[in-house]
């Protein structure tokens, strides 16, 4: 499709556009590794005393945590600039999207590529691999493939959520705030198996703001704990959730864009 070809061109130019090499990059990488390490050390201190949180031991938590980190890193690489939508509206960038013979969504997604976030992906994957070793797992090739698919789908869920929440800028100007408002919920989902928070929270992060499909449900599948979910089939719906949430996010964007075209701001 032409649009995908366009997107690839955008990626190339966006790549060149991010002058993130050098000292700045390593400082950022240092920060990412350090802070996530501190998080895990604290979890480790806790789990030394308590052996398990909600029935999950330290390495299962590390797996859960790192999976989220990797998915988030993947998503950030392609969409961290979506918080700028309100800026694009004000500085005329969005108008330029509309004036060119190309899908505005593709142009939006291709505007920036934040490859610095690869650090999150690497750290996350490293965490998953370490946990894999400590848990004594032995995956077949098929299970590794499944893990990759679930990771990508987890990233898609986050992409859809970020796109949808940031598109709210078309209605209220400050899109970043909505995303910011979900920060604590995201932290919770990243750190702990959500079932310890009770049923209504599970429903919240499954059906309303489906953050749980980013790491919790994929982890249930990969660690063979699908029985813990509200329904044992639910975790297997993660790939479907990825597609649906992404489509949902795109729908919100399209709605927002048409609103912009009729109200002009």
């Amino acid at each position: 499709m032409r649009s995908l070809r366009h997107y690839w061109r955008f990626v190339r130019i966006g790549f060149a556009s991010q002058a993130q090499y050098g000292v700045d990059f390593f400082i950022g990488a240092f920060g990412v590794v350090l802070l996530n390490l501190v998080d895990l050390v604290l979890l480790g201190v806790l789990l030394q005393r308590f052996t398990a949180i909600g029935g999950w031991n330290i390495w299962e938590i590390v797996f859960l945590f790192s999976f989220y980190l990797a998915a988030m890193g993947l998503q950030n690489i392609f969409t961290v600039h979506l918080g700028q939508i309100e800026a694009y509206v004000q500085d005329g960038t969005l108008d330029q999207f509309l004036v060119r013979p190309s899908s505005p969504l593709i142009q939006l997604m291709g505007r920036e590529i934040n490859h610095g976030n690869i650090t999150h992906v690497i750290t996350g994957v490293a965490g998953v691999v370490v946990a894999y070793g400590r848990l004594g797992l032995h995956w077949t090739f098929g299970e590794w493939a499944l893990a990759v698919v679930l990771l990508v789908c987890g990233a898609l869920v986050l992409v859809g959520l970020v796109l949808g929440l940031c598109s709210l800028a078309f209605w209220t100007i400050r899109s970043r705030e909505f995303l910011y408002g979900t920060l604590q919920i995201q932290e919770v989902v990243q750190h702990y198996p959500v079932h310890i928070f009770g049923r209504w929270f599970q429903v919240l992060v499954t059906g309303v703001l489906p953050f749980a499909f980013i790491n919790y449900y994929p982890t249930l599948v990969l660690l063979g704990r699908t029985g813990e979910a509200m329904h044992p089939l639910l975790p297997w719906l993660s790939p479907l959730a990825g597609v649906l949430v992404l489509l949902g996010g795109i729908a919100v964007w399209k709605l927002g864009l048409s609103r912009y075209q009729s109200t002009g701001s």
Binding site: T172, R174, E177, F178, Y180, G181, L183, Q184, I185, E187, V188, Y192, F197
Partner: peptide, 16 residues
């Protein structure tokens, strides 16, 4: 909106 979200975050954190 930012203010409201701040409060939301604080509350969620306390509950967590």
């Amino acid at each position: 909106m930012a203010y409201a979200m701040r409060l939301v975050n604080v509350f969620v954190k306390m509950v967590a």
